[in-house]
Design a protein around this nucleic acid. Structure first.
Ligand SMILES: [Mn+2]
Ligand SMILES: [Mn+2]
Ligand SMILES: [Zn+2]
Ligand SMILES: [Zn+2]
Lengths: 144, 144
DNA sequence: TTTAAAATGAAAATCACTTTCAATAAGGAT
DNA sequence: ATCCTTATTGAAAGTGATTTTCATTTTAAA
């Protein structure tokens, strides 16, 4: 399944001097159609169903490239810190299902007041924040 | 340097069925007196200055035990997710210096409104949140 | 002391990830 | 369509962190 977005990513790769290969198509496609963060081995196993000749090294190399281009982002989870997800747009954060891993994004957090206060109290110059919410998605709530 | 807190931790270990050993004393002491999160190898190297016979395996085993007991917590950073820090008390979060790694805690964040809104919008049951601030500590600001 | 169980470190094993390299495939030029 | 340069590939070897195994040592309770 090659979507419009998929072509967009492949063209972005090409514009960056890369060639469009079957390996990359399969990996890009998986990442674009997943609603949860995937790790290298996971991607490797899933992708080989579509393209058995794929090598694990190529998965690592493709993830590295896609991350460098800002198309995907690394996600930290309690049980693994090398999962990848398509990048969020602008100032968005993640909400993850602790049961099935499903990810949705949200925005509208406002840390300005907190940030100012903490800066006052600590003398730190505050640069950025990491925020992630964890919970149970609608589907998993049914089976809870 | 064996502080009161250090004895408290060692007694907690003992109460849990563990024995108090020189290895554990040294490791506990390092963790209690550090103002930044330490990784296993880092702890190993620092601890051997005090106790050269210490084995790396023992560092891993001790960290595992201390984390299981809730005395230390794992910290995620952009460049490594296996650093450990004494656990925060109650509802506290971390503010980390991106230059030297120094950690301070803060509290007083209020996610109730955000949490309610996101829950409404997504149908997720929200359970917990990860929040970390990054910045430059007072000392490092001087040399910036 | 004695003794049973816990803890230890060396060494080997495992695991995720990276590097190397010779062969292959992509795609621009012709 | 065919060449030709260069990027990409997978296999295999290498690396570094973490875990397992096991014979020996240490702890602390009796
Ligand atoms: Mn934010
Ligand atoms: Mn992490
Ligand atoms: Zn779910
Ligand atoms: Zn600093």
């Amino acid at each position: 399944m090659i979507s419009a977005l998929s072509n967009q990513w492949l063209q972005a790769l090409q514009a960056d001097g890369c060639r469009i290969t079957r390996s990359r198509k399969v990996i890009v496609d998986l990442l674009l159609n997943s609603d949860r963060a995937l790790g290298p081995i996971e991607i490797y196993d899933l992708a080989r169903k579509e393209y058995p000749a794929l090598g694990l090294v190529t998965v690592y190399r493709t993830l590295e490239k896609l991350e460098a281009m800002g198309l995907i982002q690394r996600v930290h989870l309690p049980d693994g810190c090398h999962r990848y997800l398509r990048s969020t747009q602008g100032h968005e954060h993640l909400l993850l299902c602790t049961q099935c891993g499903k990810v949705v994004t949200f925005s509208g957090d406002d840390f300005s007041k907190l940030s100012d206060r903490v800066s006052q109290n600590t003398g730190f110059l505050i640069q950025e924040h990491w925020l992630q919410l964890f919970g149970v998605c609608p589907d998993c709530r049914k089976h809870l």
